[in-house]
Design a binder for these strands. Structure first.
Lengths: 335, 335
DNA sequence: TTGAAAGCGCTACCAA
DNA sequence: TTGGTAGCGCTTTCAA
């Protein structure tokens, strides 16, 4: 920066101003400085800047599982919104591992991140709490804010479960099964609650089949169990707690000669990218990942920019039923 | 840090030493300092440290498409190897967008990253070259090193294409088709070359069907085209340039009543996670993503630690044929 | 509108 | 083995 100042014939402070507050410097001077910057290929040193200014410009996004396209969508939302505010986003993938999550949170703390967006592991959040106590702003996404402590952006999972079940009921399905697990996952419980409520209100029984994971493999297993049953005893509507699960069930049933959606209607959950372009596209409940990320970043920025007036809040976004071939009996019917 | 020094009754330099070179300080003193650090909850300020030391400890991984599990595997390899060397990895997802890639490279430059691992967009690499000229070490992954400029880690795509085609030939297939595109993707061209060579050597024709993208959707389209053909005219072996493509073709053909692998054998490419747990698991060519990431990080560390003796090199890793149900006619047969 | 100078928190060197 | 001290490159007052 000293070189730039010398070449432009101005002082350090002036160079700093054209970089950070161009309006405060006379256009002619600014030009000279900008030319010098360009011809020297000058790039400001973030460490020095952060150190001197006492606050960084970097935003961290720590995601529980970047292998799930939903979280990648959230990341995209965070990035897009951050761009609007001259902030940059770096990603940490905690890979469903609490230690890695803690490690990334520490890393961002040490790097003097301006703030953190956290899509947490479904578990203890001690480290996040510690960071907040040290003054680092962290907002949750896909997890509610902690009362009086932080903001959060979530999607209404109960409503999502209800949407899926109601959709099947609307199509005249009366033998419903909810497939999902493990039940200590909050999201799975909520989705089941919603589906239960819808079934109860319709006076229809809803059977629960729990799985050990939300994977394709688990779905395939459920599918074979279903095939082993007497055809008459099989459900005519299945609410799966994830697209992967639904996909496994669909594949298994199709090859077993079951007609979908004629014999059995199936819904998935998450609107994962892999489930969109398949032969029998999956009806699913979509979560507005990009929007969630954007909202989270907006909450974070408000907290950063207006620390005095900011009030913590948990934004609840509605899920959206996306009707595709796995549940739609005749085109144009259904909700 | 001053507080720590005061509370422990030592100087700043000593505190710095217990943090960075614990061996250089007497155990008793070290204990005192460590206690002080713990009781004050002291966290070193990365910006200050980086500024003073002149070099950072952060490693950036810029990936062209984190939505592809292959790149996520590479990221895992980079992380694992970085952990061994006290370095931290942060991710940037360029999302198949050259501008975003450039943006992340700049970001890591400004953040004084120790080095960068780059899985580049298949296109111009001007920015990466600029960074190298400014002294930042960047090693390529999934892309060869630039001669005399940088290291790289790649997988032998030609060999991969050959493996897939040879596998089908070994099973007696004689009407082969290679499906993939666009052909300006280097990897696709190489895979086709390899498949071609294998077919040529076996005296078998290999037809080329180009697609606009390597997606499931494109695969579905190819599948319907195939179904529209006279059954006798259809190929009995298909080498697809990606798992997504293969998956689309498989789904389409299966629903059209074609028996796989009896009537048609199909291979994919990438060993993507989504292709592993399906009803008809895909035979595919796997790329050792985790190992590639690890190698890249190791090359980067060598370049960082031994700038004098380091010699640039491009490590070529072999792909691996993974035989699953989509090509294996009778269990135990095949290669 | 610009210049001068005092740090930001830490590392690295040299002296003790 | 430890303490003292000079910066690292920038932002940010305060004066000019």
């Amino acid at each position: 920066m000293a070189d730039v100042a010398r070449l432009a014939g101005v002082s350090l402070g002036t160079v700093s101003n054209v970089v950070n507050a161009p309006d405060r410097v006379k256009p002619a001077t600014r030009r000279k400085v900008e030319d010098a910057i360009a011809s020297l290929g000058f790039t400001p040193n973030t460490s020095a800047r952060t150190l001197a200014a006492g606050r960084g410009t970097l935003v961290g996004f720590v995601a529980v599982d970047l292998g799930n396209s939903y979280f990648l969508d959230i990341a995209r939302g965070v990035e897009r919104e951050a761009d609007l505010g001259q902030q940059s986003v770096l990603l940490g993938n905690s890979d469903v591992d609490l230690d890695k999550q803690t490690g990334y949170l520490k890393l961002f703390e040490q790097a003097q991140a301006a703030g953190i967006v956290l899509a947490p592991f479904d578990g203890p959040m001690d480290e996040a709490r510690r960071l907040r106590q040290r003054g680092l702003r962290v907002v949750n996404v896909n997890w509610p804010g902690e009362p009086d402590e932080s903001c959060g952006v979530v999607v209404d999972e109960v409503r999502g479960g209800r949407l899926a079940a109601q959709h099947l009921l609307d199509q005249g399905r009366r033998e419903l099964v909810f497939v999902g697990g493990p039940l200590d996952l909050t999201a799975v419980r909520h989705r089941f609650e919603g589906a239960s409520a819808a079934a109860r209100e319709a006076g229809v029984p809803l059977q629960l089949v729990t799985t050990a994971a939300l994977t394709v493999r688990a779905g395939l297993a459920v599918g074979s169990d279903l095939l082993a049953q007497d055809a008459a005893a099989r459900p005519d509507g299945i609410v799966a707690a994830s697209d992967a699960l639904a996909s496994g069930i669909v594949q298994s049933l199709l090859l077993g000669g079951v007609r979908i959606p004629d014999d059995v209607s199936i819904t998935g959950y998450d609107d994962n990218h892999f489930a969109q372009g398949t032969t029998l596209p999956l009806t699913t409940v979509g979560q507005p990942g990009v929007e969630m990320g954007g909202q989270a970043m907006r909450l974070l920025r408000d907290e950063l920019d207006n620390p005095a007036t900011h009030r913590h809040e948990t934004v609840v976004l509605p899920p959206r039923l996306i009707v595709r071939g796995s549940s739609l009996q005749r085109p144009g019917e259904g909700s």
